[in-house]
Design a protein around this nucleic acid. Structure first.
Length: 602
RNA sequence: GGGGGCGUAGCUCAAUUGGUUAGAGUACCGGACUGUCGAUCCGGUGGUUGCGGGUUCGAGUCCCGUCGCCCUCGCCA
């Protein structure tokens, strides 16, 4: 053997136990901590698998003259190979926080594999440095155990997904990353073509069209752990590139897809994170979800459903209520049980500001006492009216009632968000609980107020619920599509539908949306053509991996489960991407930039 | 594009109404120490207060602009 063999590890830093006592081992890893007591030294050696304590004193150093000198020079994050013997620490010295806490490795020799500069921040489990710095040095942040855990479990999760889908007859099929821009949907990331001057590829917002063409091809069951790209502004749960479990199945209806996905979710959450999820997932009609939770992604970990008080409000002396009803609006209430003394006037003002952020003009409220309603609306709800309201709300003394009065859209939006906010503030959302559900029968079309036109609400390939729907222009807002969302703990994790597989129907949808035949040809010509040659009935879904892993690990942001994330301005602080390109590169692509940039075109 | 928060030592933070030489913890460097595991003890280095301008006798602090990060509304079929 060559030199390598002398330092090559025999074990990782996470696997030695009392069972290995007396064994000669070689460990490789980074110095996490260094405790020098003069005649005796402790090192914590870290790798992906764990941390093992290394021990050295005068006696052990006898085997290697340089050992003590070397150890005294060592600093944080130096990379070492340690050769030594596993020894029991003794009962009084066990470190219970580590799997290797019962043993230590008595060092006989050490090889410095790499010396490290002092890192710009301390690599400890509880991050102290700010995220900006940690993103710039992501390779250091990734040494921290919470990040390692995220990477390990994410990998396990994705593997479980693949195993499940392979076992259910799905084929892992790659679709193009360089594809075609379409005017609909999110903004595309574009890639200029050198060979076709003036033409551009787009990065896929999802493999939607290609997976449907896989169905036309007869591949029957497709899946892909697919990277998707959307050039829109970021959020804690949104990155410009993200990962989806994308799948599509032929000769199926809703139940087939939903059943399969439930199995997939239960299996992979268990395998990846050890999380048990009860089946079946409850199913909500879109309208019911909105009516009961004010949201199309209800968090089912707590109740506090919206209570309709419109009938009561109609006859109220309270102008805010009666006026809302008279102008075609609604009045709904939220009941925060036992919360009356948890919210001061000031705190309720804050809730009012909160709902104003979602378009509400205000927030009516009352506290329930033995004597009736107290607070802002008490003037209008004394006596019988108050008793009636309390009965309608199902309230009891000590409860806080909150009301929204406005158009249906505003009330549901504001109270839906308020419900989640209250659930958080009152501690009703158990972070260890995972409640999934389906939301079905979404509106097919949405009216765009700005543009004054109807647009599709989900995606243009979703089939209408009524297969024989004649004229989309009649009662348009009540046409439902065979689309479904997969929701977990108030997060939309997946979205899919049964697709249109008949070209005439697809053409009618495009016609109704005002997409001319010419535009249809230009953007979707090959898709429309494909369906002329026999497309099977099919449907599918795409599930957000980043969001699902974030939820499972109870992290704040999807950045916490992505190895190399970008900032809120879609910038990679580590790679410094995007960056400039040379004039030669631009010239080759026959591209000029109109951007006013002072920095040199490096 | 709009709103909000933050920016002071390598890192995390402090600094009274605008007032002396901008401090602490940690990291780092040096020393001591034979059972630590956030080791401990002693000593030390370390600052363009994000950047640019303005007001003032005097600015970390006030004003204007700008840059960066985070949250959020719009946006995200």
């Amino acid at each position: 053997m060559n030199e390598r063999a002398t330092w090559l590890r025999t074990h990782t830093c996470g696997e030695l136990t009392l069972a290995d006592e007396g064994r000669e081992v070689v460990l490789n890893g980074w110095i996490e901590n260094h405790r020098d007591h003069g005649q005796i030294v402790f090192l914590d050696l870290r790798d992906r698998y764990g941390v093992t304590q290394v021990f050295a004193d005068q006696d052990t150093a006898a085997a290697d003259d340089g050992l003590f000198d070397t150890l005294s020079k060592l600093g944080s994050e130096d990379v070492l190979s340690i050769r030594g013997v596993v020894r029991s620490r003794g009962a009084d010295k066990v470190n219970k926080d580590r799997s290797t806490g019962e043993i230590e490795v008595v060092a006989h020799s050490v090889t410095v594999l790499s010396e490290a500069e002092t890192p710009p921040f301390e690599i400890v489990d509880q991050a102290e440095a700010n995220e900006e710095l940690r993103m710039r040095y992501r390779y250091l942040d990734l040494r921290r155990r919470p990040l390692v855990e995220a990477m390990v479990k994410r990998s396990r999760f994705v593997t479980a997904v693949r195993t499940f889908l392979q076992d259910h007859g799905f084929l892992d099929i790659e679709t193009p990353i360089l594809t075609k821009s379409t005017p609909e949907g999110a903004r595309d990331y574009l890639v200029p073509s050198r060979v076709h001057p003036g033409k551009f590829f787009a990065l896929p917002q999802s493999p939607q069209i290609f997976k449907q063409l896989c169905m036309v091809a007869g591949l029957d069951r497709y899946y892909q752990i697919a990277r998707c790209f959307r050039d829109e502004d970021l959020r804690a749960d949104r990155q410009p590139e993200f990962t989806q479990i994308d799948l599509e199945m032929s000769f199926v209806e809703e139940n087939d897809v939903l059943d399969l996905v439930e199995g997939l979710v239960v299996h992979s959450m268990k395998e990846g994170f050890g999380i048990e999820i009860p089946r079946p997932f409850p199913r909500f009609d879109f309208d019911d979800a909105i009516a009961r939770y004010g949201s199309d992604k209800p968090d089912l970990r707590f109740g506090m459903e919206l209570i309709d008080c419109t009938e009561l409000a109609k006859k109220s002396d309270f102008k805010v209520f009666s006026a809302a009803v008279e102008t075609g609006g609604i009045v709904k209430g939220l009941l925060a049980e036992g919360a009356a003394d948890k919210f001061s006037r000031k705190q309720i003002d804050k809730l009012t500001e909160f709902v104003k952020g979602y378009g509400a003009k205000g927030l009516a409220w009352g506290k329930v006492t033995d004597k009736g309603v107290e607070g802002a609306i008490s003037k209008f709800y004394g006596g019988d009216a108050g008793a009636e309201l309390i009965a309608r709300m199902g309230a009891k003394p000590g409860d806080l009632m909150l009301f929204g009065a406005d158009s249906s859209k505003v009330v549901h939006r504001a109270l839906g968000e308020l419900r989640v906010q209250l659930g958080e503030q009152l501690g009703l959302r158990d972070p260890n609980e995972f409640r999934c559900c389906w939301v079905l029968n979404f509106p097919m079309f949405e009216f765009n107020d700005d543009k004054g036109i109807w647009q599709y609400a989900h995606n243009p390939f979703s089939a209408p619920v009524d297969w024989n729907v004649g004229d989309f222009g009649v009662d348009t807002e009540n046409i439902r599509s065979r689309a479904y969302d997969f929701v977990m703990n108030g997060w939309e994790l997946g979205s899919g539908s049964v697709r249109i597989h008949k070209p005439e129907l697809q053409a009618r949808v495009f016609d109704f949306l005002g997409i001319s035949e010419q535009e249809q040809r230009e953007n979707f010509g090959f898709v429309l053509d494909a369906y002329q040659y026999g497309g099977p009935p099919h449907g599918g879904i795409a599930i957000g991996v980043d969001r699902m892993v974030t939820l499972a690990l109870a992290r704040e942001s999807i950045r916490d489960v992505i190895a190399f994330p970008k900032t809120a301005t879609a910038y990679d602080l580590m790679a410094e991407a995007p960056g400039g390109v040379s004039p030669e590169q631009m010239a080759e692509l026959q591209i000029l930039s109109t951007a006013k940039v002072e920095e040199d075109g490096e």
